[in-house]
Amino acid sequence: MLSLTDVVAGYGPLQVLRGVTLDVQQGEIVCLLGGNAAGKSTMLKTVLGLLRPSAGSVALEGERIDRLATEDIVRRGIALVPESRRIFARMTVWENLAMGAYSRRSASPGEIDHDLERVYGLFPRLKERVSQHAGTMSGGEQQMLAIGRALMARPRLMLLDEPSMGLAPVLVEQVFDIIQAINRQGTTILVVEQNAAVALAVAHRGYVLQDGHIVMHGAAAQLLDADDIRRAYLGED
């Protein structure tokens, strides 16, 4: 569904991605592991067209998207749950969800309502708070809103950037349960995480990014067993 081929990207003279090749198949949950500054967020930005790759290509279902404007990429069915949530704090919960559906301006109000109900079904808490300002909600609720907002775009591919960040362990588990549920409903998922244990537990496959290179990839179960991973990301010696 999504494939990156030898992608080189960065900020000015600073190269962050130095030839990344990666693919995500329809229906999968793929997780991208890596420490701080490994280039995980840069990779997501490149997929979304917020950053132009200086070499290599990004393709969605066989069509190159690396020269498209962000809004056109999004309209093709990619949604993002950004790092540290970045919900619109000064807008209400409903307004945030409406922004999520913005890329589907051709959708009928009935379809939008249907999707709102779907989001409220996954996150009943959001329904209770529709007219509350999003910035006044707890971190966990904001994360639910960020996921709900992405779902409103009815994406075929959902990108999540560190969804566990700053959440209590019990919430982290909930978030990943929901990611799994969304995946079962037919959305392909690429999740970037530092918390390897919980991410690999739900993922089908994983990639490890280090210093802008993919240094390892394979089935999630296989990566969970790999010694290097255990040492680097699971805190085991």
Partner: peptide
Amino acid sequence: TTLGRCMRAVAEDREVAAVMGVN
């Protein structure tokens, strides 16, 4: 209005607004 919502979204977080599909 939707336009106003987009204006507020861009004012609050330009990058995320772009990711929502806002020009």
